[in-house]
Design a binder for these strands. Structure first.
Lengths: 229, 229
DNA sequence: ACGTTTTGTGACGTTTCCGTAACGGATTCA
DNA sequence: TGAATCCGTTACGGAAACGTCACAAAACGT
């Protein structure tokens, strides 16, 4: 997602290695989604729209390279950077990995520090552009790097939660998000918060967005949730 | 089906295992139909058009593999994904299971989490609505992701129940749904609501669909129910 | 430590939607 | 033709969903 905490999808079937990486990623301030096999990974990509994917080469069900191919060749979809990870013995396939569309390639055993650097590099590559180009809606522009939102050129002042709400909405304009989905995504998977709280924050977001005029871009879908546009 | 709550047909003769699975499926937000043997299963497929089937290998009356064969070979019918479940000792038959047409294959004892992931994967394969593709009927377009319905390009305003009704109809245009089936599916399995209520909502749906002109696409089948087209 | 900002909740008013009853038209069958 | 169903439509009371306000607690920066 595109709020200030980038989401990393970590696809690795070996629990030990997965957790080591996850630990480091979380220490770096990333939100980490874990997947143990290819199918889970594909699922999570659809469900959660991560900002970057770390992909092990060898996986049950669907191999890493197949996932990579599927993600990179599907049409009209946001370009999610993929970093492939493979054991040294498979190094011969390096070319094939990159040809399939991986944006970077790391050999096991890798330096964690180096890997973090590559993650940041890839994120830098793709985030500003997605913000500037794709994340514009009507006259609203959200820049996740500078944490600023403008409408019709005028800067808006949003609280942290409102900002994340808007970022979620703008990621897929038009898509309806249920209150539960928003709670999961913005507040956290297992935080107990009343679902009506979402309403209040939607209200605050609306007020902020229409402060300098303009129509209310947030659509209420009765019985379902909220959406942009 | 295409409203927001997918229906899972769970075919398992052992009550304990069945209920454990059912519990988990319901916790995931699925609607669960239970069947204890093959005949029941076949009946429910006809009656309720589940979105996916979890099928135990060993069953009374009709074996799982036979059901699988029948469902997959019947002509002009929607392709319902089937996940076969079998005990480890029968693993040798894995090939046969997949050859018969099962879309996936799980060995007991299985990880519930993994099974849930597989269910979602199969559902995504067959339910394009979650990916944003639209189901078209005549000039009516229903997008379950944005919760928008248009006819001849004009947007229609539907209430929640009308929306779900239409989504159900569009899933299989032409199919006749009895009032009981619609109540089960849209209102919920054990909600007590008068049958005639369906009539009223059909009426409201009709009014909404013909608000901007066009013929009434909802067909009344006297003594049986309603259908689209 | 203080003031500011943000957050979650409860309360209340409003809107929308739902379920039922009732009536009248249509269809079937004897 | 008349009775019995089945269906379409309308109206209405009530309930559920939603918007908004105010307030206390918590987080934050200074």
């Amino acid at each position: 997602m595109s709020s200030e905490q980038p989401t990393v999808l970590l696809v690795e079937d070996e629990p030990a290695q997965r957790e080591v990486l996850a630990y480091n990623l979380e220490a770096e301030g990333f939100r980490v989604l874990r997947a143990g096999d290819g199918e889970e990974a594909m699922m999570m990509v659809e469900e959660d729209a991560p900002d970057i994917i770390l992909l092990d080469w060898m996986l049950p069900n669907i191999s890493g390279i197949e996932i990579c191919r599927r993600l990179k060749t599907r049409p009209n979809c946001r370009d999610v950077p993929i970093i492939m990870i493979s054991a040294r013995s498979e190094e011969v396939d390096r070319v094939r990995g990159l040809e399939t569309g991986a944006d970077d390639y790391v050999i096991k055993p890798y330096s964690v520090i180096e890997l973090m650097a590559r993650v940041r590099t890839q994120l830098r590559r793709v985030r500003p552009s997605t913000v500037g180009v794709q994340l514009g809606f009507e006259d609203i522009v959200l820049d996740s790097e500078t944490h600023r939102v403008t409408r019709a050129g005028k800067e808006l002042k949003l609280g942290p939660t409102e900002f994340r709400l808007l970022a979620t909405f703008m990621e897929k304009p038009g898509r309806v998000w249920s209150r539960e989905q928003l709670l999961d995504r913005i507040w956290g998977r297992d935080i107990y918060v009343d679902t009506r709280t979402v309403d209040v924050h939607i209200g605050r977001l609306r007020k902020a967005l229409t402060r300098h005029g303009g129509t209310d871009p947030v659509r209420t879908v009765r019985g379902a949730g909220y959406a942009l546009g």
